[in-house]
Design a binder for these strands. Structure first.
Lengths: 136, 136
DNA sequence: CGAAACTTATACTATAATAGTATCAGTTGC
DNA sequence: GCAACTGATACTATTATAGTATAAGTTTCG
């Protein structure tokens, strides 16, 4: 079971770099520092920019910068941005009614677990990760 | 994010059926009752049999039966059987040393979350699901 | 102006996991 | 012997993930 995909992982690492640097950084520099394929990172940065987590500037002095305070960027939001919502509610909305009671019983338990996971992800922010990083 | 694959889901549902029936059931009957593709379920049953959760008997009077008490079958074990172990430890064992501290910081948090999830899955058994089912 | 360093936008590919499907062989009991 | 079952494989289709490639536009500096 994989909790985070590479995209999410890279996004978080890029955000951490930006938070540490406190200014504008080019995708190329971030990619080199984090060993992330450049084009892949560029696409990730675009997604982050469109969602308002970073600002970008074109041109030779351009690059990427944080658009929000590190403590205002929650891992739960980045996760949702790149991996979509937690979607265990399928049986409730997509099919008429859960035609199998056993499945519903299971889903009830899964929903409980997912809420727990989500709550934990919501408490993790770029700021809290940064704190861990500096403490280590 | 998907916690359970179809295989795990089907396996649990099959085990619940068997626990309710308290005897031998053919894969065909289970598949029909749970709307599971027959060949797919048969492969799942084989895996369950090889792992010792069910016994099978060939021939016209054959079928599948539980080999363990419902309360001795934990969802965590079924999950592991079909989806493998929780594998967030990659950076510790597969690569020499985590060459990126930010990643390690993240993984540390992920491990914590995975332990929580695993603990919850360990507390769910076929018996506890059956109880939910009868209470509903 | 024009090159260098940057982002934007999109299209393409490779690999692996998931979810099934299809068969043939062997077993059991009437 | 045939109907209903399991065992064991091999195959396919779809999707997600993880990239790669490239053409086009922007900004600054010399």
């Amino acid at each position: 079971m994989k909790l985070l995909t590479k995209k999410t992982d890279y996004a978080v690492r890029a955000l951490l770099r930006l938070a540490q640097h406190d200014g504008r950084l080019s995708a190329r520099r971030i990619a080199a520092a984090e060993h992330i394929p450049l084009q892949f990172l560029r696409a990730i940065v675009q997604t982050l920019a469109q969602a308002g987590y970073v600002t970008t500037r074109e041109g030779v002095t351009g690059g990427v910068a944080l658009a929000r305070a590190p403590r205002a960027i929650r891992l739960a939001d980045i996760l949702q941005l790149f991996q979509g919502t937690l979607d265990m509610t399928e049986c409730l909305f997509r099919k008429k009614v859960c035609r199998n009671r056993a499945t519903c019983v299971l889903r009830h338990r899964l929903l409980d677990i997912e809420h727990t996971v989500l709550a934990k992800f919501q408490r993790i922010t770029i700021a809290s990760l940064l704190k861990d990083l500096n403490a280590a």
